[in-house]
Each structure stands twice: as C-alpha cells, then as structure tokens.
Amino acid sequence: MSNKRILLIGPNGQVGWELLRCVQPLGHVIAAGRNQNEQIQVHLDLTNPDSIRRVVREVKPTIIINAAAYTAVDKAEKESELAYTINGTALGILAEESQRLKALLIHYSTDYVFDGSYTQPYIETDTVKPLGVYGASKLAGEQAIQSVGGHYFILRTAWVYGLRGNNFLLTMQRLAKERDELKIVADQIGAPTWSRMIAQATTNILAQLDTSLCQVDIEALSGIYHLTCAGETNWFEFAKAIIIHENKQPNILPITTDEYPAPAKRPTYSVLSNTKIAETFGIKLPTWDKALELCLLS
C-alpha cells in the first residue's frame, strides 16, 4: 500500500484530524488546507479553483479525501455564496481533477440534505429536500460529484462530535461548568456520531478496496453511503448522556425547536439507515451511546 498517495483536505477538522492518524498505514499522506500549521503540508484554498487544480495536479494523488467543509449551519443563511463555493463548486472541481487522474474521491455529506418529514431511517435513494442553505450547499456538492462520475464515495453522516473543534459534546462540557441550568431541544431526532468512528470506517473501506483478496469494480461500488452510529436520540437526551460524566451537573430542561429559534431550519427527524454500507463493506458502527462512552474514555 506504500505506493498510494493520499491527498487529505481539511486535516484540522473533527473528521480530518482523526483521518490523518487513521490512514497513515495505507500510503503516503499529504495534508492540505487553508491555514498553515504543523498539520498542513500543502496550502489549498477551496474558495479558489486554481488552488484546487494546482494542488491536485502537483500531488498527483491516487486517493483524495475531502474532510473540509463550510459547516456553520446558521451563518450559512447569510453567507450562502461562500457555503456554495466551498461545499458545492469546489467539489465539482475536485471530482473533475480526480476523474482526470483516475483517482478515488471520498467526500463527506450530511443528514441535512433531508427535510425530516420521514418517521423511519432514510435510505440513500430517498428524496432529498434540504431546509436551509447549508444542506442545499452540501447537496450541490453531492450532485457535482455524481455528474462527473468516476470513482467516488459520498459518505453521509450526522450529528458529528469529537474531542476537538466546535461541536455539541464540547459545548455541553463547557456549559456544564458555566451554568446551573441548560435548556436543550428535545424534538429533533438523529444519531450522534463520533468523528473517530467515521475516520476508522473510511480507512476500513480503503483497506478493503486495496487488498488483493478483494478484486472489486470500484466504479460499480461508487455512490452515496450513509455512515452514522446506530440507534437514535434527541439533543436533550444526548446532552444528559454527556453531562452525567461531568463533575458539575446542571439541571437540564427539555424545550421545543420553536422555543429555541435559529436562522436555519433543522430536520426534525434525520436518522439514516446504514444497511447499504453494512451489506457492501460489513461496516456497522456501535450505538450512539456506546460510542459516546468510548469517546469520553479515550
């Protein structure tokens, strides 16, 4: 596997940071991003088409993993052009460059491409209908990749958290120290997913595709896959499961979405079915509460 050249875009994000550590055994990893630091070897700006093309053509990767995205859900309502540029336009360029090199492109999308009107887990072919700019921009990225075709995996995940970056877990841990009472939305249903498990599952897929024991048609397998932890919960119950591990435990009160107005609408139900990825690659993530326990013990 040492002959593989893996271009990892966004190594400082929640998933990217974990990926940088997981995929190292699979080949030579080149980390690319916008802000120069010890993690980033190559400067790449997803808002600049020339920057994207230049880096891909210089690195000549066999695998491109895009873990970068515009993820400010509420802010996107006012910064729609920037969100579409990073989440949509940039992906079309990455797909074109990947296709030109006959490389494999892996990209992460979101449960927010759905409107939340379902009452059972969404499968990959269910109708997409994003409620806000963030979800619509991520859908634009999916469609851009699909229109180019070639070798690609779009992994839709949801409610991502980890021990670094900006996420619900770290916010709850901070607020538990600062406040005596927390009001948390209880009528939005989803599946919290630890960033490390997303990275490990991605590495598992790549290892399967690369092994001599698995002669597969990657183009035939290319497409969208859902990848989340099993089970479902709401933000209120998720918060309770986090706070119980804290020394200071504030009183937590459930509220409705209407009681916590935000610029962007969220789907009330966005649980994703993981049947396809389980049947194709044998990947089954643990339940969200078990994954949370493992995260907090790590």
Results as ranks from 00 to 15, higher is better:
Asn12Met: 01
Ile30Pro: 01
Leu139Pro: 05
Leu292Lys: 07
Thr119Tyr: 07
Arg21Asp: 15
Ala83Ser: 07
Glu38Gln: 12
Pro25Glu: 13
Val185Tyr: 10
Asn166Ile: 02
Leu101Glu: 09
Thr110Ser: 14
Ala103Arg: 06
Glu97His: 04
Ala103Asp: 07
Val42Cys: 07
Lys78Met: 09
Pro192Trp: 01
Thr110Asp: 06
Arg21Met: 09
Asp187Glu: 11
Ala291Asn: 07
Ala264Asn: 06
Met172Cys: 15
Ile86Gly: 02
Cys295Val: 00
Asn87Trp: 01
Thr119Met: 14
Pro25Tyr: 08
Ala278Phe: 15
Thr62Arg: 08
Lys284Asp: 06
Ala291Gln: 07
Thr110Trp: 00
Ser109Cys: 07
Phe153Cys: 08
Val160Gln: 13
Ala230Gly: 11
Lys290Gly: 02
Val133Gln: 00
Asp115Glu: 11
Thr211Met: 13
Leu104Tyr: 07
Glu81Tyr: 02
Lys183Asp: 13
Ser222Gly: 13
Ser270Arg: 13
His28Trp: 09
Ala76Val: 05
Asn247Glu: 14
Ala67Met: 10
Asp187Cys: 05
Ala68Asp: 12
Gly282Met: 00
Gln215Phe: 04
Glu142Gln: 13
Ser212Tyr: 03
Glu232Tyr: 03
Thr157Ile: 09
Val42His: 09
Ala32Gln: 05
His43Met: 03
Cys22Ile: 04
Tyr108Cys: 08
Ser2Thr: 14
Asn12Leu: 00
Ile52Ser: 10
Val29Gly: 08
Leu104Arg: 06
Ile255Gln: 14
Glu18Asp: 12
Val23Thr: 06
Ile243Glu: 04
Ser137Gly: 05
Ile145Asn: 13
Val133Ser: 00
Gly116Val: 03
Glu232Ile: 03
Arg21Gln: 15
Ala191Pro: 03
Ser222Trp: 09
Leu46Pro: 02
Ile242Val: 10
Gly88Met: 04
Asp74Met: 01
Asp258Glu: 15
Asn274Ala: 15
Leu7Ala: 11
Ser2Arg: 15
Thr233Met: 06
Ser298Gly: 09
Lys78Val: 00
Phe281Ile: 07
Glu293Trp: 01
His245Met: 04
Leu101Ile: 11
Asp217Thr: 02
Ile52Asn: 10
Ala201Leu: 08
Lys177Leu: 12
Gln188Asn: 11
Glu232Cys: 10
Phe238Tyr: 13
Glu232Leu: 04
Ile243Phe: 07
Asn48Thr: 04
Trp235Arg: 15
Thr203Gly: 11
Ala67Glu: 10
Ser222Cys: 12
Tyr161Gly: 02
Phe238Pro: 02
Pro11Gln: 08
Ile93Asp: 15
Ile52Asp: 11
Ala191Arg: 04
Thr85Val: 02
Leu44Ser: 03
Ile40Thr: 10
Ala201Asp: 08
Ile93Met: 14
Trp194Tyr: 14
Ala278Trp: 14
Thr85Pro: 00
Lys102Val: 04
Ile198Met: 12
Leu182Ala: 11
Leu206Cys: 13
Ala241Arg: 03
Ser273Thr: 04
Met1Asn: 14
Thr127Gly: 01
Lys284His: 09
Pro11Lys: 02
Ile184Gly: 14
Leu175Arg: 15
Gly231Tyr: 06
Gly88Asp: 05
Gly149Tyr: 11
Thr203Lys: 05
Glu38His: 11
Ile243Pro: 01
Ile244Arg: 09
Thr275Asn: 15
Gly27Trp: 09
Glu246Pro: 03
Tyr70Cys: 04
Ala262Trp: 00
Gly190Asp: 06
Ile283Val: 06
Val128Glu: 05
